[in-house]
Structures are given as structure tokens and as C-alpha cells.
Design a protein around this nucleic acid. Structure first.
Lengths: 207, 207, 207, 207
DNA sequence: TATGAATGAGCTTTCATTCAT
DNA sequence: GATGAATGAAAGCTCATTCAT
């Protein structure tokens, strides 16, 4: 699924995929280290293992790399989540599992996610909504599970509450990575997960 | 309270204060609009109302401006909070009031806070801990109130739980600004505040 | 008549002819539009209907294309003139006809001629004399007719005068295309031709 | 008379004048040698005697240099002509003098004029009409003198004829520089001038 | 103290040319 | 013979920083 939003001069679709993979891998590690603006296109090309000329055969502007990176990270996070979770199969047990899996993914990809959030503002006005849409889709996954639970009768929540709780879960996952400098010295991932789930469920159940 | 971490060639402390005020005010509005990296020092000087040469009489490097901006924003947020809240006076009512006030401040200063978080990574390794320390102090304010409540016997929380809840509150305040693109179309600030407080207290009380 | 001044890797002479025809046709229309320097080799290849790799099978450098184009335009202009004019058959009537035909050719090929003159300076030191030689041959055509007229006794001109008048005629033909922005809004081609011929002959006859 | 059509970052008008003078002088000699496209901005800066950064304090784009150069050349040619010629004082003697002076100027500035004509096509669509307007003003000078002569009764010419003859004179001046490779080996400037004047007047007088 | 002209390292991007397939 | 992916030198341009006035 070559991303057609970014123009490539090269025609061979398979090659585009390969080269962009190299590019993204290289770029992510550079962006982690120094951010988008402090990273030069030459460094990206070098990290990707090809020349600056080749880089520009696969993108049009430097910003395209950022877009590709954001796109990729989202897709990976979503893919990892979809592997483990069926959003339509709702039960408290399932919700716990979903949260736990989500936190694990966010732990493993914390560098990437951090990069994405810190740099996304550098995307053009065109690209940003596209990325935000993907983010909403992830929040909706938690909403779905919560909806199923409500339908099951396991919990009682208004639409308003359900939406907010989904966002809270989503943000708590990011929080583990963003505030790692303090949280990860206080808790293990497991402790963090358990405490957050406990807080959440106590709120919900007592309704 | 001239910030001594940033070197100035000019000696007159009062003048330093004045010029830096102008500089920060100009810079914040520019950073909001285009981010730190896309803002030039010339633009900062112009927005501040003086020449590029004068700018460099009051800072050493462009990055110093970012540092001053971050510093200022933190101080303002803290100051606003301290006006309204006494962290040692703990009661559920007080906690509610503190959260509510904090959310109001974050609503009013959402642009500034957003700027700070998106650009903070561009601070040197030296400046970052200094900024993070200030952040922790704000979290600790909620911790204090919660501690008082525990001491009062109004609620029961382990240290671990108390710390996490403080962070949750803190992050939920930021979340209002960071995720405004979705949250602020779903809720008024008041609704948001009430729902979050309700979620929080249900979790705590049922213990 | 493959132009041997430009090296080709391909051996088949007929193929060279075909490919270079495609190349020149494409290049002329591109050069008209954006000039030699702003036209890329990729664009030339594309306009010619083959790949960049193939282009370089038939030339050595980009400049070779310009040389081929200039060469071709000259040949076409000359060919068109030779169709209609016999330079050795001199008479005032014949001179008028020759001038008129020449102006018609220059009118029809004004784009090409313009391209050639504006870009010729980009030819290497090697190619330039070759092109200038061809130009002189065209001037000499008018010289020949004038010589015949002198021999006929129809007019009286020194060698010096004859040469200069030939150049004047030649330049007045180019002038129609080069200064089209003003001349073509003042005169039709026919008016222009008649007026120039009249000026010329009045000068000559009164001798 | 700083040219306001080209933006400068520097405010001091006198300095702009000085720096642009240096820039134009350097650029003309480079353009003569290698043309506009083969000349780099760095070379222009160096030839002007300052750094690349300084160059861009006085222009916005490379093309601005070309515009400034064209502008300057026209102004110089015109100035030189206006020194010697009063277009409203018409007589055959005066016309001869005007042509002669014009040819002298074109001889002395042939390099500059050549540069201007070969590169003018690289000007943006905005700048071109501005330059063409200046050119017409020069043609009109000859038109004026011819008009005076007609009014005097010294010669008889229709408007159409007068306009065309003015253009012929103008082009014959350029021709001396453009076709120097052949003309200047055949004639001295004086011979060329005399022959052209003679051709011209024979045509006019015999009417 | 305040100014702003000068600097040049360093950026993104282009494009003529090559060469393995 | 034809292709087009790969290359990297070199271009135009920006901008943080300095320093003479």
C-alpha cells in the first residue's frame, strides 16, 4: 500500500515500498535524537542507506518524510492493537485486556509516538487532518468496547461519559511515554496499568 | 527576578526585565503561529519592538528566547494557581475547586502551554531539567491537597495511588488544550470539568 | 545526413536519424516555451517519446541537443529558401521575390529562429563557428542575386555596398520575428515587405 | 534613483545605490563571459566584492540582478544619447549626427547590449514589458527627429514609413554589435555609419 | 545602549549523467 | 537498443550571529 499522497518519481511500486521503509526507519531514529527541524535531508538519506538524489526520487519535499513517518507510526500502532483486540466483543475482561495491550504497545513504541506528537505540528495544513483522523479511529476502538459493555449491561455510561473515558484511556497510554521521566521511575508498566485500570473501573462500576 | 540563567550584556537589571518582557510577549505569539524553528530572530526582535542587535544584548542564542518563554509560561500558570489554591488546606471541596481552577487556567493559557510542550524538546540538555522541575512542582500541588484529604480521613489512598492520580489530573488539564480539536467540540469547559471530577471521585470514594 | 559532429552510441544510422528527429521536434517546442537552460534532459526525452537513457544513446551532452536543434533550423530555413530562389538568376524582379520569400519563411519560422538566436550563445566554442558559417551562406544568397543584378547592369553597387545591403536584408527578416511585439501590431507582413523593398530599391536605383 | 521594483532588506538608500552599482558592474562582466544562467549568485557576490549574504540583502532573487542589469544598460544608453541629441531639432544634418552618435554608443557598449538582448528573455513576465517600454522610447527618439524633418519640409514620409525607418536605424545600431563577428572585419565603424546613412538618405530623398 | 549591515556556514532541492539490467 | 533507478556536484537562498558605528 504505497502512500499515494506523497509523489515519487520512481515507477516501480515495490521499490518505492522498500526505499520508503529504509527512509522511515532512518528518519525515525534521527527525529528521536534531534527532532525534525534539526535533522537534514542528507542525514536522512545517509541513514536510509542511499544518496540525497535517491531520497528525492521518492519524495517531493523534506516534509513528506515527516508525513510518511507519522503515517507509518499510526499504522503500526493500530495494527498492533487490531491484532489483539476485537472492539465489538465487549466485556469488562476484554476492556482490561485492550487497555493492557494498548499500554504495552505504547511502551514499546514510545520513542516513535513521542516523535510523532512533537513533530506533527510541522505538517502542512493538508496533512494534519489526515493524521488526526487516524488518531480518532484509535479512540473509537475503546469507545466500541465500552459500547458493547453498556449493551451487555455490564456497565452504565452516557454517550458523553463514554467518549470522555475513551479519550482518558488513550491519553493515559501516551502519558506513559511522554512523562516517562517521572512515571517510569515510580512504576513498572504493570503497576501503572493495574492502577489506571483500577481507577477507571471503580469510577465506572459504582454508577 | 531577572532570570540569571540567560546571559545579558546589558547591566541595568530593570531594563533587562523590560526588554525581556517585550521579547517574550512577541515570541509567544510568533511561536504559537509558526513554532520555534520557523520563527527567525529578526521576527522576534521586530515583534518585540527593537532591532536584532538589541535582541542579542539580552540573550546569547536564539534558544535562550525559548527558555525564557517556557520559564515565563510556567511561572504564569503557577502564579495563577497559587492565587486560588492553598495546597495544605485539604478537603474534597477544596480538591474540586483546585481542579476546576487549574482547568480554567489551562483553558485560558492553552496556546502558551501548547507552545511550551511542542518546543520544549528544542531546549538544550541543560535547560530541560530546570523546566521539568517546575512541572513537578505543579503536580505536587495536587499531591499535597490529596495528602491533606487522606490525613483528614476523607479518602483513603496509598502513596502510589495518590501520585498517579495527581499526574492524571495534571495531564487531564493539558489534554483539554492539546486535544481541543476534538474535546472542545464535544464539551464545554464546565461539562468537561464536572465529568472528570466525577470520574475521579467515584474512583477514590469507593475505596 | 546524420550529423557526425554529435557522437551516438547506437550504430544504426537510420535509427539515429529517426530518434534525433523526435528529439529535435520535442526540444524545439520546449525551448520555445522555456528556453534551453530551463528545459531538462528528462523533459526532452519525454517530449521525444523515449526514456532518458535512450536520449543519451544518441547524444553525449545536453548541449548536443541545442546544436542539433540549431543545425536543423538553419537547414530548414535554407531549404525553404532554395526551393523558391535561384541565386544566380539576377534581376530586380527576382530580388524582390527572394526578399519576399525570405520574409515569409522568417514569419512562419519565427519561433524557431528566435530560439536559435537566443540560445546559440550557449553552444560551445567549437559549435559556434559551424553555425555562423551556415548563417553566412544565407547572407551570400542575397549577395549572389545582387551580384547578378550588377552584372546585368540593372544596378550599380560597390562590393562594400553589396555586402552591407545583403546583411541589411538578412537582419530585416530576423527583425520581423524578433521585434514582433511592436512591428506586427503596426504592419501586416505584406506591408512590411513592401515598405522594406521600396526603401531598399530607392536607395539602390538612385545611384 | 534606487530601483524600487527590486526589494532590499537594507534601509539606507545611499548604501543600496552603492552596493547595487558594485553588483551590476560585477554581473555585467560575468554575464558577458558566461551568460546569466551559467553565472552563479556566489560569483556575482564575489565579483561585486561582498559576501553571498550581503548580495541577498539587496535583492530577493537571482533574477533581480538581471533586471537591475537590463535597467542600468538601457538607462546608460539613453543617457549617452540624450547628451548629444535634441530630438526636436530636426534637419538632415541633425539626423546624420544622431545616427552617428547612436552607432558610437552601440559600439562602445556592444558587450552590455548583447548581454541584455540575449538574457532579457529570462526576465519574468512582469519585468519584460517594463524593459520593452524603455526600448520603444529610444526608437521614438529617431521618430521625433524624422517628424521634425518632415515638418521642415526637408523630406516626405508617411507615418508608416517614418516608424519603420526608425526601427531600421535602431536595429542597424544593434546589428553592429550583434553581428560584429562579420561586420567588424569588413568595415570600420565610420565606414559602416557612412554606408548606412547613405542608403537611408537615398531612399528618403528620392521620394 | 541601540542599531542594522555584513557574514558565511549550511540548508533544501535540482538535474545532467551513468550503468546495471 | 532501451530502460529508469541511482548518483552527487552544485545551485539558490536563509538566517543566527557579530561588530563597527
Amino acid at each position: 500500500m504505497t502512500n499515494q499522497n506523497v509523489h515519487a518519481s520512481v515507477k516501480d511500486e515495490r521499490l518505492i515500498e522498500i526505499r520508503r521503509d529504509q527512509m522511515i526507519t532512518g528518519a525515525v531514529s534521527l527525529f528521536k535524537e534531534k527532532g525534525f527541524h534539526r535533522t537534514t535531508t542528507r542525514e536522512i538519506a545517509k541513514a536510509a542507506g542511499f544518496s540525497i538524489g535517491t531520497l528525492y526520487e521518492y519524495i517531493r519535499q523534506k516534509e513528506d518524510v515527516l508525513y510518511l513517518v507519522c503515517d507509518r507510526i499510526y499504522d503500526q500502532v493500530r495494527e498492533r492493537l487490531n491484532e489483539d483486540i476485537d472492539p465489538n466483543q465487549g466485556s469488562i475482561e476484554n476492556l482490561k485486556k485492550a487497555i493492557s495491550n494498548y499500554f504495552i504497545v505504547m511502551d514499546e513504541m514510545q520513542d516513535e509516538v513521542l516523535v510523532m506528537y512533537q513533530e506533527a505540528k510541522s505538517l502542512t495544513k493538508d496533512a494534519l487532518p489526515y493524521v488526526l483522523k487516524k488518531e480518532l479511529e484509535m479512540v473509537e476502538m475503546f469507545e466500541s468496547i465500552l459500547s458493547s459493555c453498556v449493551e451487555n449491561g455490564e456497565i452504565v455510561l452516557s454517550d458523553h461519559e463514554r467518549k470522555l473515558i475513551s479519550h482518558n484511556i488513550f491519553v493515559q497510554g501516551q502519558m506513559w511515554g511522554f512523562r516517562r521521566w517521572v512515571l517510569q521511575s515510580l512504576y513498572t508498566l504493570e503497576e501503572y496499568t493495574n492502577l489506571q485500570i483500577q481507577n477507571l473501573l471503580q469510577g465506572i462500576h459504582s454508577k
